[in-house]
Design a protein around this nucleic acid. Structure first.
Lengths: 138, 138
DNA sequence: TAGAATTAGTTTGAAACTGTACTAGAAGAT
DNA sequence: ATCTTCTAGTACAGTTTCAAACTAATTCTA
């Protein structure tokens, strides 16, 4: 019997929102909105607003807002990039790094609570499958 | 080496938004916004607004809005429940069922394009893992 | 080196979302 | 019966999100 794609998709969807929901209180305690957290978590890998927008698949204008909030909260700061004066290089402050790390652990902990129900082999399996499905086609 | 929960979570997150993004054009063609689609797809299993809000983990007020739109588009209608006169029983119209089915196939097709990269065994595997992780604790 | 085309990021204004307060009906207690 | 108390759904109003227009810096072309 074939596995139903729509059902799998729904399952996955549900799983993510359950996990996120379970964590949002903890994130709030760190002073982070959900969306802000995504930006905070990605900024090390994508240190410019345009990169963040592309990586997170959200509009540039939204990045502007989230970054403004994160700067106001002291989690990051902007610096003008020497290479290209139009660019704002985003730099995590010490508090920003601490908040990101704590938020990531909270999230991982919740996800791990779910992962704990499956075997380590299954976890490796899951990772392999997701990676495969995410590879950009050709 | 242990599989990193936070990373898995991010992978999964990314996968879902890529798939949803790839489908939104097709949904729009059916006259469905993304959020509306979720309501349309769930209404058969959760035929009252309060149930929908709980199942989809969105605020009651938002359900009111989506249902209003779906009713306006002729995809469903409200009926007063005889058992409890406060309740609105939601009923899919023929067009609603057709749109839901077409939208679900579109989504499944896109997800299947991803699933096609992995073996049937892996798909079964994935389903089993997700189900396990979604089971409500104790 | 001057203009056209591109790109980074922000601002603006309008649409989408949702917390709160509300109305109507139901259920329980006295 | 009446009085809480609770639940279903909606309306309103404040906030969040984002498409489009904009400004500024860069790159390309000649």
């Amino acid at each position: 019997m074939a596995v139903d794609g729509a059902q799998l998709w729904t399952l996955n969807q549900r799983l993510l929102s359950v996990v996120m929901d379970a964590c949002s209180a903890e994130l709030a305690q760190l002073g982070l909105e959900t969306k802000e957290f995504f930006v905070l978590a990605e900024v090390a890998a994508s240190p410019y607003p345009a990169e963040l927008a592309a990586a997170l698949m959200i509009p540039k204008a939204s990045v502007t807002v989230y970054v403004r909030n994160l700067v106001a909260k002291g989690f990051m700061r902007r610096e003008i990039d020497d290479e290209d004066l139009r660019r704002h290089r985003l730099i995590l402050t010490a508090e920003g790094q601490a908040a990101r790390d704590r938020a990531l652990s909270a999230l991982a902990a919740e996800f791990d609570r779910r992962l704990a129900r499956i075997t380590p082999q299954d976890r490796t399996e899951l990772q392999r499958i997701l990676l495969e499905m995410l590879k950009t086609p050709e």
